[in-house]
Amino acid sequence: MNEWLMLLLGTALVNNVVLVKFLGLCPFMGVSRKIDSAVGMGLATTFVLVLASALTWALEHWLLVPLGMGYLRILSFILVIAATVQFVEMVIKKSAPDLYKALGIYLPLITTNCAVLGIALLNAGEGSGFVQSVLYGLGSALGFTMAMVLFAGLRERLALTAVPAAFAGAPIGFVTAGLLSLAFMGFAGLTNH
């Protein structure tokens, strides 16, 4: 139990997928202008990540490994992730049209979110068990959501300040992300106990 908690904490804070591993920066920069859409993106990614972690684990252990087709890993993982994303897109379009509009192109782009594929591949590479895989995915996704929401809060405030013209928009966004990443360094070593 304690080990699993540490796994969650470790993936969410210490090895935060965005701020420490620098994966999934595309939606992190793209959909963080408003807190509401950041929360939506975070939840969508969480759903995809957890589901993809479970599905890819099944794929890896029941199909790819028994048949000795490790070389098909990336291909088949992307296929599964793409289908999951497509499914999420449909659900969101039906249930939250505003969010759908706000997420725009970044929703289908979860497919190519390197965080999703990255976590799946890391899981496969480390040969983790099923629960571990799912927790790994969940923790990463929570970390991603947290980073997104924090960053969106900062950017909402940034939008109201007088940033010099040369740095307005994406440049100051990256500077902010850098400083946030600096702050997250403080969590280093938290799970070594």
Binding site: L150, L154, G186, H193
Partner: peptide, 24 residues
């Protein structure tokens, strides 16, 4: 951070992390 983290002193990190939370 002081108790479990890698750094002996966590104040600067703590303040920065809470700075990030302040707008929320």
């Amino acid at each position: 951070i002081r108790t479990w983290g890698a750094y002996p002193e966590g104040i600067a990190f703590a303040v920065m992390l809470m700075n990030a939370c302040a707008p929320l």
